[in-house]
């Protein structure tokens, strides 16, 4: 693995019977990069991401994540990555402190580390006394920022975000992206899967999957230029209109 890639994927393929969900995808992600992984429903995003998280074995191809081989060291990969899906990461009937304690425990943090992390999060997210209130009593926006911070509790090298900002108000959304920028600025790689094209605009680089293959990859600016589009949604439409899989 070269020092300036944190995810390196070559011809990664996953077949389910005769169906090829992910078809020879190849890409690299650099440390501290915000990498958008886009595609229509059913294009193969989720399958690809599951493989990268060590949750399912590829049928063929090579990949290293955080320096570990996908086939041999899936368990070590899990120590080095964080994961946040849309809303389900936190236990609503536990307090914030208990949630941090739980996730810290899962990743084997010491009691002191957990304590420090809790203090740090309380400060950064301006939680104050709310740290001891139940997660379900918090507004949605806070919960979202909190679940991102909790996904980062063990200082992972890569954090996977699965459609992170659906349904929140625009200011909260921007605060959320500010947090992501901050994390990337500190060197954490951010891997975002989404089918909301405006989220793609925030990424340093995006790849667009159509029918299991990566059809386009580059910075949003490059892609917009290449496909003569006003925004990423337009790029996506031009690419995905040719998809065969989505409605069959």
């Amino acid at each position: 693995m070269s020092t300036n890639t944190v995810i390196s994927v070559k011809d990664l393929t996953k077949r389910f019977g005769s169906f090829t969900a992910v078809d020879h995808i190849t890409f690299d992600v650099k440390p501290g990069e915000i990498f958008g992984f886009l595609g229509a429903n059913g294009a193969g995003k989720t399958t690809a991401m599951r493989m990268l998280c060590g949750l399912s074995l590829p049928t063929a191809g090579e990949a290293t994540v955080a320096g570990f081989d996908l086939y041999r060291d899936a368990e070590k990969i899990k120590q080095k990555i964080g994961y946040m899906s849309q809303r389900f990461s936190l236990y609503e009937d536990l307090t914030i402190r208990e949630n941090i304690r739980f996730y810290g425990g899962i990743y084997g943090l010491s009691n002191q580390q957990i304590k420090d992390k809790t203090a740090e999060m309380t400060r950064n997210l301006k939680l104050g006394k709310e740290v001891d209130s139940l997660v379900k009593s918090l507004p949605l926006g806070w919960r979202q920022k909190l679940s991102f911070s909790v996904a980062m509790v063990h200082n992972p090298r890569i954090v996977f975000l699965d459609e992170p900002t659906g349904g929140v108000d625009p200011i909260t959304r921007r605060e959320f992206w500010t947090l992501i920028y901050e994390a990337a600025n500190k060197g954490t790689t951010v891997f975002v899967t989404t089918h909301y094209m405006d989220e793609a605009e925030y990424c340093n680089r995006v790849s667009i999957m159509v029918d299991g293959r990566i059809e386009a990859m580059g910075s949003p600016g490059e892609l917009k230029g290449k496909y003569e589009a006003d925004d990423m949604a337009d790029v996506f439409l031009k690419l995905a209109r040719g998809a065969k899989r989505s409605d069959n």
Partner: peptide, 10 residues
């Protein structure tokens, strides 16, 4: 259109 991809939304 919540949860639907960009093509279908359009």
């Amino acid at each position: 259109t919540t949860g639907v991809d960009a093509v279908s939304r359009k």
